[in-house]
């Protein structure tokens, strides 16, 4: 009896509860003279996400509708778009959660060039991310090539950058940033917070290389601390804080303070395995 009621309530999640009008931005820069809007009416249940709705529209109504998605579980960051004017991941946003008066408006992310409809071009975004060298840079090449152990890192040292490792690169912060809106050369909150993430990592030696990139005309000093980036991050990362900490770190490094002590190498079996 109990299990059947549980079954019923979970089935309720997918029982149609009404219809919602979805207004979608339609634009193909190669063909269309100007962008337009198209409205679709769709039956939804309590559990229907916006991604589910768009997939159904594409299957049943308009196969030409273009949008980007991949994992469907808020892990890849591919499906970020403007939902009722706010940056959101559509795979984890339920239609009924955001429908205002039975309507939803979808448009591509602000501050990105449009490829088609809701799909944006992320090239400059990823170029900027790559520019800050988002990988561990080491000077001890010998240890890297022939490791003798692990790099020691305490919980406190890990906690300094942990939140920034959650970044999905969905582009929501970049889209919400008012500086990016006017200064297209600005590195943006994502790249800058990732620069901070790698600089404070005790295993990293790339301070000078990254400072040369972020301490530039269109680097971290262009952040006016509007905090829109932190406000819209679907993973609750705080890029605005990362940028302020990065500024502090740059000023401290000018005074001769290093961001961290270099990580010691703790001998382990890794080296033996590699050499063996």
């Amino acid at each position: 009896m109990e299990s059947s009621s549980v079954m019923e309530s979970s089935m309720d999640l997918w029982k149609p509860v009404g219809t919602v009008k979805i207004r979608v931005y339609k634009y193909n820069p190669r063909k269309d003279f100007a962008p337009g809007w198209k409205e679709y009416e769709i039956e939804v249940s309590r559990g229907t996400t916006i991604l589910d709705a768009l997939l159904r529209i594409k299957e049943e109504t308009d196969p030409s509708l273009a949008f980007r998605y991949s994992c469907g579980q808020a892990l890849c960051g591919s499906c970020a778009m403007m939902v009722n004017g706010r940056q959101m991941l559509i795979c984890r946003t339920r239609v009924l959660e955001v429908a205002k008066g039975g309507k939803i408006e979808l448009r591509p992310l602000d501050n990105f060039p449009i490829i088609r409809d809701l799909a944006c071009d992320f090239k400059s975004f990823f170029d900027k991310h790559r520019a800050v060298k988002p990988w561990i840079i080491r000077k001890d090449v010998e240890e890297l090539e022939n490791p003798t152990g692990d790099y020691k890192q305490t919980i406190e040292e890990y906690a300094r950058y942990y939140q920034f490792t959650d970044c999905l690169k969905c582009g929501a912060c970049y889209s919400a940033c008012p500086t990016v809106a006017t200064d297209h050369e600005y590195l943006g909150p994502q790249a800058l917070s990732q620069a901070y993430r790698y600089i404070v990592d005790t295993r990293d030696d790339g301070l000078e290389e990254r400072i040369a990139v972020v301490d530039s005309d269109h680097g971290c000093w262009r952040c006016h601390f509007a905090t829109s980036c932190s406000d819209v991050c679907p993973k609750y990362v705080d890029p605005a804080q990362g940028i302020q900490l990065l500024k502090k770190l740059i000023l401290r490094s000018k005074l001769g303070f290093k961001p961290h002590k270099p990580a010691e190498v703790l001998p382990s079996k890794i080296g033996e395995v590699k050499r063996g």
């Binding site: 301490d215 500024k247 000023l251 000018k254």
Partner: peptide
């Protein structure tokens, strides 16, 4: 001059 110096 680096941007950080100007901003400092």
């Amino acid at each position: 001059m680096r941007e950080s110096t100007k901003m400092l």
